[in-house]
Design a protein around this nucleic acid. Structure first.
Length: 380
DNA sequence: TCTGGGGTCCTAGGACCC
DNA sequence: TCTGGGGTCCTAGGACCC
């Protein structure tokens, strides 16, 4: 066991909202919500900007993120915008600008890399770092990292440091914003066990509910349950993992690079569509999704051996169908033709809320192009 | 007018091969 | 013939995460 490791988890504070506050400093201190579809620019005077009001929002969509001031009203990520509008009608609503967030994401990661050479990318706003090789105290390194991030972006982050990824992830959330939590294995019972099981990365709503029904609500309570009992309730694999997680055990290494496994595009409609009455519109949507997936494949020089269709019905049930082919596909027309097979196998029992197209079984485009007999398939 | 969009991993059954 | 067993691929669904 590598109990001598020193692993950090760094999490940007209210990342998307904080980027927006850099752009609109006059909103600082006010409840701000990021989310929803982009609406036409408000007709405010220059120098007298008019922001969207959450209470005026109409339509589908969820909160992507919110400032701490908005969270005080009970508005959190994933909540429906209509619902959040009832809680905080006077909050400012801004559309998400993922291009800007990706730009800031690159900048903060670059800044961290100037201090720590080994990081694992965990998405747009968080990373793991390996501090094992450093000689200085954790607090000193953490301060240096935070300063580098602040200098490069003007943003704050929270850091958790412990012997492994699982505990560091929990720790980075304990002292937000701009926090630092350093945890030793000997602190486990005092600082981790009192927390609810849902704080563990990998215990979601379903598992939390089931644990609650068994009388288990805290991580400490989970740690007291015999592993065999957890395995009979949750299966051999997940049961063992639950037991180890509750005891703070995790020896996963940092993953410093990885290949994408799948790639997808999906869209929720403004209104639910009918498979016959709205056939023209649905066809255009599938075609467009194929174009976007093909474009993504092209940009990443990938092809796929499996294409899938996802349908979400008005009742929120989700059905997927996929099909695999011998020769990898890349062009939009090829994707569309393969999907015809999937479309036939779906029982269209209800109005449709969402359609999605996924490419998996990804291979390098190079491998496809190197098969001369298949070159003619590249015309689209 | 509750409930987005992009991913990963796991499970489980059936086909197929040796 | 004993209806064995591995191993891999494909498909569908679901939990979970950011």
């Amino acid at each position: 066991m590598s109990s001598s490791r020193r692993i950090a988890h760094l999490d940007m504070d209210a990342f998307f909202a904080s980027v927006e506050l850099l752009r609109y400093p006059e909103l600082r201190g006010r409840p701000v919500v990021v989310g929803g579809r982009r609406v036409p620019a408000p007709e405010g005077n220059v120098g007298n900007r008019v922001f969207g009001r959450l209470g005026d929002y109409v339509g589908r969509g969820v909160v992507t993120t919110s400032t701490y001031e908005a969270r005080a009203f009970g508005v959190f990520s994933g909540m429906g915008l209509m619902q959040s509008a009832r809680l905080a009608p006077d909050a400012v609503l801004l559309p998400a600008d993922f291009e800007a967030y990706r730009d800031y994401s690159r900048r903060f990661k670059q800044a961290v890399l100037s201090v720590v050479p080994v990081i694992e990318d965990r998405g747009i706003d968080e990373i793991y770092l390996d501090l094992t090789e450093f000689d200085e105290p954790s607090a000193v390194i953490a301060d240096r990292i935070k300063q580098a991030v602040r200098d490069a972006t003007g943003l704050s982050c929270s850091i958790g440091i412990s012997p492994n990824k699982l505990l560091s992830k929990i720790c980075s959330d304990l002292d937000k914003p701009d926090g630092l939590t350093v945890l030793l294995m000997s602190d486990l019972a005092d600082r981790i066990w009192p927390l609810p099981v849902s704080k563990v990365n990998g215990i979601g709503p379903k598992a939390t509910q089931k644990l609650k029904s068994l009388g288990i609500e805290s991580i400490g309570q989970l740690a007291q349950v015999p592993v065999g009992e957890l395995q009979s309730q949750f299966g051999a694999h997940y049961g063992r993992w639950l037991h180890e997680a509750a005891h703070g055990m995790d020896d996963r290494p940092l993953e410093t690079s990885r290949q994408p496994k799948s790639l997808s595009r999906e869209t929720t409609f403004e209104r639910n569509l009918h498979v016959r009455h709205d056939r023209t519109e649905l066809t255009a949507i599938v075609d467009n999704l194929c174009l976007r997936v093909a474009d993504d494949l092209q940009r990443k020089s990938l092809a796929c051996r499996t294409v899938g269709l996802k349908v979400k019905f008005a009742d929120f049930s989700v059905v997927t169908r996929d099909v695999s082919v011998q020769v990898p596909l890349q062009g939009a027309r090829q994707l569309r033709e393969a999907l015809a097979d999937c479309l036939k196998r779906i029982d269209w029992h209800d109005r449709i809320r969402l359609l999605g197209v996924r490419a998996s079984g990804l291979t390098d485009q190079q491998d496809v192009l190197s098969q001369p007999s298949q070159l003619d398939l590249w015309r689209t």
